[in-house]
């Protein structure tokens, strides 16, 4: 394959690739929950650096992160979601996540009890918004969720939900979601994520 060819040229790149590969292997082989958490956090942090995007894609780390979203362990979910938040900034990773049915998995994380997980999920959904995926993301259920978040006591959650509502859908869509919400419930007693 082509990536092989050019990677051989730069030893720094191939070192990095091998290191990431070691991490993925350890993650898959270890039985220790603690080690898994550490490696997952490592990988998620490596996803922050765009120089690693290509290696992580090759190692199918986007799918690894997506797998974590349905785990019982809340740390797994938080770190996996954080990793996806970092990866989804890259358009190619975005497409991979979209192809792997990422939207529904990420949307489920909006109900997490952990604020950090919810924040990562919102940012990821924003990153996943592309012309092809817009119709799947700007759906009433998600918009209503964002409307509730925009009333949250947490400024970070409030801000991020506000950005989502302003940037990822039309004003009419928001208005429609608001109307639908009025029939269902008032602003009092909204379930909010807590830490």
């Amino acid at each position: 394959m082509k990536p092989e060819m050019w990677r051989k040229g730069s030893s720094e790149g191939s070192d990095r690739f091998e290191y990431l590969q070691t991490l993925v292997t350890e993650f898959q082989d270890t039985d220790s929950e603690e080690a898994k958490e550490q490696v997952l956090a490592n990988l998620a942090n490596f996803a922050y650096d765009p120089k690693n995007m290509e290696y992580l894609r090759e190692l199918q780390v986007p799918d690894l992160f997506l797998d974590m979203l349905t785990e019982e362990n809340d740390n797994f979910v938080e770190f996996g979601m954080g990793g996806l938040c970092n990866l989804s900034m890259d358009p190619e990773c975005r497409d991979i996540i979209l192809q792997s049915n990422g939207i529904s998995l990420v949307t489920n994380c909006l109900s997490s009890q952990r604020e950090e997980t919810v924040l990562s999920a919102i940012t990821t959904l924003m990153n996943l918004t592309a012309p092809s995926s817009r119709s799947e993301i700007a759906v009433p259920a998600i918009l209503q969720c964002m409307l509730r978040f925009s009333l949250s006591e947490s400024p970070r959650l409030r801000n991020l939900a506000a950005v989502f509502l302003q940037d990822c859908c039309t004003e009419e869509q928001v208005a429609r979601a608001e109307q639908q919400m009025q029939g269902q419930q008032t602003a009092v007693g909204i379930p909010l994520p807590k830490d």
């Binding site: 956090a41 998620a44 954080g82 950090e116 924040l119 990562s120 970070r156 991020l160």
Partner: peptide
């Protein structure tokens, strides 16, 4: 610490 950094943080 074991922590994941994202742009949100």
């Amino acid at each position: 610490a074991v922590k994941v950094y994202t742009i949100n943080l």
